[in-house]
Design a protein around this nucleic acid. Sequence first.
DNA 1: TTGAAAGCGCTAACAT
DNA 2: ATGTTAGCGCTTTCAA
Lengths: 339, 339
Amino acid sequence: MPVTIKDLAQELRLSVATISKALKDSYEISAETKQRVLELAHRLHYVPNPYASSLRKGSSKTIAVVVPEVADSFFALSINGIESVAREKGYHVLIYQTHEQGEREQAILQAFHNGRVDGVLLSVSGDAAGTDHFEELCANDVPLVFFDRVCTTVAAARVQTDDQVSGYMATQHLLEAGCKRIAVLAADKQLSIISDRIAGFEAAIAESASPRGKHTVLYCDAAEENAYGQLVTLLQGSDRPDGIIGLVESLALLAYKACNALQLSIPRDVKVMGFSNTKAAALLQPSLTTITQPAFDMGRQAAILLFKALQKSHFSLKEEWHVLPSVLEKRASTGSGDA
Amino acid sequence: MPVTIKDLAQELRLSVATISKALKDSYEISAETKQRVLELAHRLHYVPNPYASSLRKGSSKTIAVVVPEVADSFFALSINGIESVAREKGYHVLIYQTHEQGEREQAILQAFHNGRVDGVLLSVSGDAAGTDHFEELCANDVPLVFFDRVCTTVAAARVQTDDQVSGYMATQHLLEAGCKRIAVLAADKQLSIISDRIAGFEAAIAESASPRGKHTVLYCDAAEENAYGQLVTLLQGSDRPDGIIGLVESLALLAYKACNALQLSIPRDVKVMGFSNTKAAALLQPSLTTITQPAFDMGRQAAILLFKALQKSHFSLKEEWHVLPSVLEKRASTGSGDA
DNA sequence: TTGAAAGCGCTAACAT
DNA sequence: ATGTTAGCGCTTTCAA
């Protein structure tokens, strides 16, 4: 049995109230008593029962992070950012994965309706399942901060990157490199990050002299094998693209795979770039030009907002909307092909 | 305020006990009452307060996962394996990172001494800080399962891969490929996985006709820049290695970087292989030969053991020791260099 | 400066 | 089949 406040009280012949106050350094308690209590607590390895105090105080010192997937360099890094501030604040972090399934997202949020966590950081699942579960959480006064994949119709804080600008920059970069037929590889249509990036792409094309008809957006199947098939078909078509933008990391890598298989040279035949946060980008052959998101900082920023809301109740998350810039890292996959 | 069992009782003019029993489908309660309770609970979005029941029952339906780093393909995948079984069992998962710092590991485990979690899955930090914190946890009857990076002196369950065999296989593979001067790139000396892999390397060399003196183990600095420097120096030396084994993922990638910089051709000049779980391995140029660990399964297996211990108290983790095989994936980086 | 006691929401033994 | 009650460990008001 773990040692409790009662044990300490008995041992020191004090009341539990005194112990409790001494442990939190209350001004009501004499310095000498505090000393004795702390000493014994330390000697007996006393650790307060977190559930008893959570129950009593109505707060858990725990936050939840809900992401599509941990095994993804972007989310892994943003979790690091979140963790860095949670640790400073002495908070614990529960991590949940939706695996891109809307139903799981709903089920997970369901569990937060009774004080399990003091707040939630979430990046929405690709397979959207409406927004009722978000609304309900907010209605229950559980602070919610979206990061990266946000939901614009819900009145919660948002931390994201400038996806439209990024899509624009990426397209611009390929146009400047001389591409005439750009193919954009997209994932889940309903994700804000995808539609925003595509909007940026469309804007860049519209502004350019290049006719829209030459360029294309390919919505790839969620199953990798299928997506690969789509891609191969595209690359074997008569109007083969000479530039590819993968809107998510996995699609850029898939493009490499397809080009290798079809013996297309990157960047000679096809220039490839992608939204990606993996360190391996620089080590691919040729090294991959990327739009890199500030993953760690986005997580950090989102967590900072959440804790602000937790600390001062008058701070409203409803109108917080932060946008952090992504950066274009030019590498060999969109170069001229000369050394 | 969230709705409680009391609210339901009042509304239905029943006692809290009846509600509680009805909610857990007790045989004592009439079908009709159950029906009414469930219906109301659902209508009011009743979610039980987890802390109240944890406090009462003395168990939290929560486990902790302690890993060096989430942003690492091996750990991310093993977390997935763990999560898959936690979800089946309806458990919540707290994730903590040590960032390879022994002190943090101690501080984290400290928090588990009073029921916060029902059990712990842990992969030890590189910067070891003794084993007292493990012993104390076990002494407090918190079930502990080590995975991948285990601690052999503590009587807790262990799930690992056959690191010695893997080291042997890797070395064997390079010898067969004709390497005469193999360099093994090692990380933290005190980690079991590192010393075991080196033992396998030594065994393979000893068995071969190749003189031990030609081969070398390079202990790389934890800071990547420094490790890079060490590596470049090695590759510029008079007795340049013609085979490299990176004992952790980052070191294999570093070898690529160094070879690129020094214009050494892989696999012509140097054959490179590494312990790695990243999907990018197949996409590197040349594709990287790897020893791939069963990351997901190791996590899954470790979690299964833990839940076994949680369910049947007479099941002892002390003597559980599971070894899962890693596989050698031969790719171009250790080939002959011909197409 | 210290202590007594109520109560957070839930469960389970023990009535009825 | 349903109800009463004690209590998990802690915090907090109020009293001494």
